[in-house]
Design a protein around this nucleic acid. Structure first.
Length: 410
RNA sequence: GGAGGGUUGCCAGAGUGGUUAAUGGAGCGGAUUGCUAAUCCGCGGCGGUGAAUAGCCGCCCACAGGUUCGAAUCCUGUACCCUCCGCCA
């Protein structure tokens, strides 16, 4: 959420962001509602002042008269404020200048790291490898879990945890505090995290108030909701490990086979809260980016870094870099990581503040980035490191977690 | 799942219909005194209006409604916490 004062003072910027993102917000209506809101607040406050005076003087007759007038106005104000909040929640964040404007075709490849492997044989995809090595079972996965269901078995199950543990340890060594959060979250956390109103149909709903989160970013951000930090408490650096759930309703016919697009997976996620300073915020953006690239480089996986275009990125971010890792079966790169600077968009919704040097209260800046997500990353590991006989060599950094260096066909 | 108790400011804690929500502690700022401290003074958040981190007004006693001229206080619903019982990985 943006500050209404910022919106009023920077109308053109906000309008441009809405256009660039093809966001669906009626800004004119918001401004009109905001005018009505302020007008009603003034009337209601004045009447309340009168009422308080009458009550103090025990002037019952005057009090009764005011009560009648006030009731109608308060109801109106209440309705206007609801409408106001709903519109405010839909206004997207501003965009940094370097974000390419346009649709996904405008995504800008910033750099490529590592060389895609050259096979002297016809490489298999992870689906056949999974079957051959007896480590992934899609048939029974669908039988039990439904469409997009899967079982990881044997070395596959262990490789999955190995990758997650490796990423977790890597971040802990860099000073991130490890957290296993709840994945059943209340509605406020999803609204506060900026997941809603946009991503509501992608989210599993459990009851009137409870949802299954699609990322640990949601509970990690809500962790500090309604809290105020001292300057010395910042930055907060967290690394969360959690299950993630996504309905994938928006991508129904896409990637219908394999581990690429599944309803449930695990992810190690980095989250940072820092001072409300764009320089500092963007410094952490680079730091989180480096962390993820370190992890991929340690694994020996080739990848490219992409700056997402205005229409392709989330509405809450001011800038997003995706990492796409090389996946031989796609003969191309597939998204495995997503790094976003969000500034105070989420913390304003969640009321996460700190007391600045001058004594004023400010909303923190926030960032989040994938460290690793499994099983999607297993696609890259299995396919890139496969041998001619279908066996797969395990990256060295993972071996202390797997206790094996190779998976062989059964 | 059953029964009971509770939720007040950073913390503790008083307050059961009528002034600015006691009091104590912590923290921060200032004053004073130099003896590892004491003493004194000041300090909540949000919104509206302002150039204003000035004044003024409003709102905030878990949250949402209701009763009343007037609600922390009475009523209803919801959430959470505690105790006991039951069940249980």
């Amino acid at each position: 959420m943006l500050d209404i004062n910022f919106i009023r003072d920077n109308l053109e910027k906000v309008k441009q962001s809405i256009l660039d993102r093809k966001a669906n917000v009626d800004l004119e209506k918001l401004l009109k509602i905001d005018g009505q809101r302020r007008y009603l607040i003034q009337k209601v406050d004045a009447l309340r002042a009168k009422r308080n005076e009458a009550a103090k003087a025990k002037d019952i007759e005057t009090g009764k008269k005011i009560k009648g007038e006030l009731a109608g106005l308060e109801k109106q104000l209440h309705e206007i404020e609801n409408e106001w909040s709903n519109l405010m929640l839909k206004v997207p964040n501003i965009l940094l200048d370097e974000v390419p404007r346009g649709d996904a075709a405008q995504n800008k490849i910033l750099r490529k790291e590592g060389e895609p492997p050259k096979f002297s044989f016809t490489p298999k995809d992870h689906i056949s490898l999974g079957k051959l090595l007896d480590i992934i079972d899609f048939d029974r996965g669908v039988k039990v879990g439904g469409f997009r269901g899967y079982f990881l078995k044997n070395e596959g199950a262990r490789l999955h945890w190995a990758v997650l543990n490796f990423a977790l340890d890597h971040l802990v060594q860099k000073g991130f505090q490890p957290i296993v959060p709840p994945v059943i979250n209340r509605r406020f956390a999803l609204v506060g995290g900026g997941q809603f109103p946009w991503g509501e149909e992608d989210t599993y709903k459990l009851g009137d108030e409870d949802y299954l989160v699609g990322t640990a970013e949601i509970p990690l951000m809500a962790f500090h909701a309604d809290e105020t930090f001292n300057l010395s408490d910042l930055p907060k650096k967290y690394v969360g490990l959690s299950a993630c759930f996504r309905t994938e309703i928006g991508s129904y016919g896409k990637d219908t086979k394999g581990l690429y697009r599944v309803h449930e997976f695990y992810k190690v996620e980095q989250v940072v809260l820092c001072e409300a300073n764009e320089q500092e915020s963007l410094g952490f953006f680079e730091e989180l980016q480096d962390n993820s690239e370190d992890i991929l480089q340690s694994l020996g996986l080739p990848y490219q870094v992409v700056c997402l275009s205005s229409e392709d990125m989330g509405k809450k971010a001011v800038i997003t870099y995706d990492i796409e890792t090389w996946m031989p079966s796609r003969n191309g790169h597939g998204e495995t990581h997503s790094n976003s600077a969000v500034f105070d968009f989420q913390t304003r919704r969640l009321k996460i503040k700190y007391k600045d040097k001058d004594g004023s209260y400010k909303f923190c800046h926030a960032l989040n980035n994938t460290a690793i997500a499994s099983p999607r990353i297993l696609i890259a590991i299995l396919e890139n490191f496969q041998q001619e006989d279908g066996s797969v060599k395990i990256p060295e950094v993972l071996q202390k977690y797997t206790n094996f260096s190779e998976i062989k066909p059964k």
